[in-house]
């Protein structure tokens, strides 16, 4: 059984991933056209699963070099957590997403203030049980990025998961 994960192509294009690379990873989804700045991209991967059995779906994301995003559990209520929000899909039951722990980070101008962030690659795990057949799960990654001296407004990275459970 294979789960084919795919993500909107503009997100990859925005951070310099070649269309050829995207085509290898994203399958044959119709992709939204407009370009938009993105500081996180989705790295699509295939997963072998069995229909009707609990499978932990791994969603791989990559934060662009030089940037960080808050973890799912930032250390201040003022900070915007990274969240995966998936829409309910027929034939699929989802458990709560599992997020990695954040890395400790401090701005150079505020070293005493320890933040919990994701940099580089991070994986969000989503346990699901899917019935046999073709499925699509649509959703988004909500995040807010900063670099070493500035922050950028919150963004939503569209995520679309397409698979056939057999």
């Amino acid at each position: 059984m294979r789960w084919r994960l795919a993500v909107a192509g503009w997100a990859m294009a925005a951070v310099g991933v070649s269309p050829a690379m995207f085509a290898l990873q994203a399958g044959t989804l119709p992709l939204p056209a407009p370009a938009q700045k993105s500081y996180v991209l989705y790295v699509a991967e295939d997963h072998d699963v069995h229909a009707g059995k609990r499978t932990v779906l791994e969603l791989h994301f990559r934060v662009a070099d030089g940037y960080h995003v808050n973890s799912h559990t930032p250390k201040s209520v003022l900070l915007i957590p990274t969240d995966v929000v998936l829409q309910p899909a027929a034939g699929i039951s989802e458990e709560a997403a599992e997020y990695p722990s954040g890395k400790s980070y401090s701005f150079s101008f505020d070293p005493a203030n320890k933040l919990s962030v994701y940099t580089g690659d991070f994986v969000v795990k989503v346990p699901v049980v899917a019935s046999a057949g073709a499925h699509t799960i649509s959703g988004k990654l909500h995040y807010q990025a900063c670099d070493h001296a500035a922050c950028y407004p919150p963004k939503d990275l569209p995520v679309q998961i397409i698979f056939t459970a057999r």
Binding site: D65, S108, F109, K114, H148
Partner: peptide
Amino acid sequence: VELIPGSAGQPG
């Protein structure tokens, strides 16, 4: 180009 975040106590 890579913008490299500074570690604690050091500028980027």
